[in-house]
């Protein structure tokens, strides 16, 4: 594995330089996700989805609501990215091997399966996502992150941005998850889908 030096930013020639490859500080070694700072898994994320989210953060469509604690931390990072930096990050993320995420949430997967029928319309019965429909893979993501995002969509802390069509869809869809138990159930079902 190698990393190309990219986008050296020099305020002055003698100053310490840095590129925009900050991802692993928060998202863990090889982008495996880090519970400690609630940063999700990037390894294995689809390039088109990663790009859309970075662009959403940059455009202020995500990470704006003060209750979206982790999104608020992500947004200033993305706000400074150029198109070239985003392309570089996507290439970098693509170099990481996917490692199955640790299962931390166990709930009623049976009930979750019933709820997931709705999710499957876009994200696929196998939870592997559908680029045409703009729906990312769910299985293999850190389960605690899925829970946080479902709650954020449901509360309107994510997806509420003007022009965030997919986010608005998710805000509507998550209303069927009537309480925290339902959210945990559906995520525990996603956990059973596994991913190599």
């Amino acid at each position: 594995m190698f990393i190309l030096p990219w986008m050296k930013v020099n305020a002055a020639e003698e100053n310490e330089s840095y590129d925009d490859r900050y991802c692993t500080t928060c998202h863990g070694a090889d982008g495996r996700g880090n519970y400690g700072v609630q940063a999700p898994r990037l390894a294995g994320m689809e390039p088109w989805y990663l790009q859309r989210q970075l662009e959403n953060f940059r455009a202020g469509l995500r990470g704006v609501h003060l209750s979206d604690i982790e999104g608020i931390a992500m947004r200033p990072m993305a706000a400074k990215l150029t198109d070239e930096s985003i392309a570089d990050i996507i290439e970098w993320v693509g170099s990481w091997d996917y490692v199955p995420a640790e299962i931390t949430i166990e709930a009623d997967a049976g009930r979750g399966a019933q709820l997931f029928a709705q999710c499957a319309t876009c994200h696929g019965a196998d939870g592997l996502g559908n680029e045409t429909l703009g729906a990312p893979a769910l299985r293999g993501q850190n389960d605690w992150y899925l829970v946080t995002q479902l709650k954020n969509f449901k509360q309107g802390w994510r997806g509420n941005g003007d022009g965030d069509t997919f986010g608005q869809q998710m805000m509507v869809m998550t209303q069927m998850l009537t309480d925290d138990a339902a959210i945990n159930n559906v995520v525990s079902y996603i956990n059973t889908l596994g991913r190599d």
């Binding site: 863990g28 996700g33 880090n34």
Partner: peptide, 23 residues
């Protein structure tokens, strides 16, 4: 809170403690 994002083989109670500490 950054150790938890590394690849490691620490015992479960050790990891539990690391996950508990707030920054």
């Amino acid at each position: 809170h950054l150790i938890t994002g590394l690849d490691h083989n620490f015992p479960a109670d050790y990891v539990k403690a690391m996950k508990y500490v707030r920054r």
